[in-house]
């Protein structure tokens, strides 16, 4: 038998969570400390040094306008990650409560929510984004909002399916018989049990949101030049892939590492939230 103090003690952090969050933190720190890492402004052009291969001066080379690729990559980090996180947070905040509500309440309300979702998913995502962004002036935060709206149905469907099966459990019945309100049942009884799949999905969504944000930037609807994000950088570097592959490589690798570390954080969080893996099991 374990003493209660031992049980209360926080379990050890899962390894994936440690690795993932340190990587992510390092990337964000580097982005903030960009002025101290490189000598060049992210938008400083130098026509004499166009498309230069990486050397001691430009560590990751320069792009077609002679801008330092390292500075631009570091500068793009906060935009890209910010867009991914903001879009997913928005989708989570709207989608999860609606999904839980539909799955728990069933009936007409559920029908109304799910048919709306059906309509939303029947529109191709990029079309939907274009609709939202083309009607107003473009900007990075609007791109985040558009991505968020596109991802709402996915989170609604997932949380609804989890709520649907949990609603049959006797502890929900017990909560109802003691007169719990809807909010308690949804967020204190169902949500904690729905978190593991939601956390995994959310971490995946952040990665995809960064990529979809890049698509919008590429279409000229997200980040506006001379500002930069990784998606835009990769898109702009595409014509020069043969002559100057390093222009696309740096943001590509950065994006790749970020996506992996976010997924590690998701997996780690899932382990961390699983009470069964805690000591005393």
């Amino acid at each position: 038998m374990l003493a209660s103090a031992e049980l209360r003690a926080r379990p050890r952090l899962p390894l994936p969570l440690v690795i993932g969050s340190s990587l992510l933190l390092a990337i964000l720190m580097a982005s903030l400390a960009a002025p101290f890492i490189t000598a060049f402004d992210f938008d400083a052009m130098d026509v004499t040094a166009r498309m230069k291969a990486p050397d001691a001066v430009h560590l990751l080379g320069t792009d077609e306008f002679g801008r330092d690729v390292l500075s631009r990559t570091l500068h793009g980090a906060s935009t890209s990650i910010g867009l991914g996180v903001a879009a997913t947070a928005f989708a989570f905040a709207i989608g999860v409560p609606l999904g839980l509500l539909g799955g728990y309440m069933r009936g007409r309300l559920d029908d109304a929510i799910m048919r709306t979702v059906d309509i939303l998913v029947s529109i191709p995502p990029v079309m939907l984004g274009l609709l939202i962004l083309a009607s107003t002036s473009p900007g990075v935060w609007k791109a985040a909002l558009a991505v968020g709206i596109i991802y709402i149905p996915i989170l609604i469907r997932l949380s609804r399916s989890v709520a649907l099966s949990l609603a049959q459990e006797e502890f929900i019945l017990a909560a109802r018989t003691r007169g719990e309100g809807l909010g308690w049942i949804l967020f204190r009884e169902i949500l904690p049990n729905a978190l593991p799949p939601l956390v995994v999905e959310t971490s995946l969504r952040i990665s995809f949101a960064i990529l979809l944000g890049a698509v919008f930037s590429f279409l000229g609807l997200g980040t506006q030049p001379p500002s930069s994000d990784w998606g835009l950088m990769i898109a702009e570097a595409r014509p020069y892939l043969e002559q100057a592959p390093w222009i696309a490589l740096a943001p590509g690798v950065a994006l790749c590492v970020t996506v992996i570390s976010i997924n590690l954080v998701g997996e780690g969080l899932r382990q961390f939230l699983d009470v069964r893996s805690q000591p005393g099991a």
């Binding site: 459990e169 006797e170 017990a174 009884e189 904690p192 049990n193 009470v275 069964r276």
Partner: peptide
Amino acid sequence: DRSDRRIQMVFQNPDSSLNPRH
């Protein structure tokens, strides 16, 4: 009329009647 809560229930399956996360 749940105000007096004079009737309570014990459920069949102890695995599902207690919220695993509480």
